[in-house]
Design a protein around this nucleic acid. Structure first.
Lengths: 107, 107
DNA sequence: AAGTAATATTGCAATATTACGATGAATAAT
DNA sequence: ATTATTCATCGTAATATTGCAATATTACTT
């Protein structure tokens, strides 16, 4: 079916899965790394950097944006994409908490 | 196409994406949480716990197993699934490192 | 041996994701 | 004004994911 049965899961589980989905593609990981590296807040050199077609990058950016991780400001005709650090740290917290809670074992 | 162009990305980016993919479904998050919670190393009450059909759970377990996160030992006809804590901590380290490296911003 | 319980595997339908060419909208440059 | 540049969106093809019924497999129980 390809449809996730959301009703079965807790809000926390869904939230973790949502975050993970953003990171679940190397291109998006690359984009996040690149954006955070660029001090000058340079925009779509991302296309050159990552090596995928512009519409594809745009699509990936949308996924990142929908997760609240992107801040974009126009500078002339250039769009300057930046990481929303606050949101990013929020996600990190959620993940860290998951990893710390989920670690006991039995065998 | 639905095919990820792996050649474009670094090993680290691919690794992070692989890990994230495991966590990118609430059912798998639920399974990991449940497994780690069960001291007695109880097996497929997972089906009851998570609420999906047995083949579906089995499929999700396979994804988790392929990521090296699952240790399974047979106890009679019961299969006892446990978290591979070492591997889990490895993943945690990779993630933590990613989050810590990727945090600077510009605007 | 026959029946039952626990898992895995197979096959398939529905949907989601990934990638890109074509196109569109906005702005800068000429 | 015309053209070029930057980015988003649309449409579409290829592939992946999710979910389950049916079936297979294995091992315990009787």
């Amino acid at each position: 079916m390809g449809v996730t049965k959301m009703s079965l899961h807790t809000t926390e589980q869904i939230e973790i899965a949502e975050i993970a989905k953003v990171l679940a593609h190397p291109a998006r990981v690359a984009i996040l790394q690149y954006i955070s590296k660029q001090e000058g807040c340079i925009c779509n050199d991302i296309v050159d950097e990552v090596g995928l077609a512009q519409p594809t990058i745009s699509q990936h950016l949308q996924v990142i944006r929908k997760a609240g991780l992107l801040k974009g400001t126009f500078e002339g005709r250039n769009l300057c994409y930046c990481l929303d650090v606050d949101r990013f740290k929020e996600l990190q917290k959620t993940f860290t908490s998951f990893f710390n809670t989920t670690s006991a074992s039995c065998c």
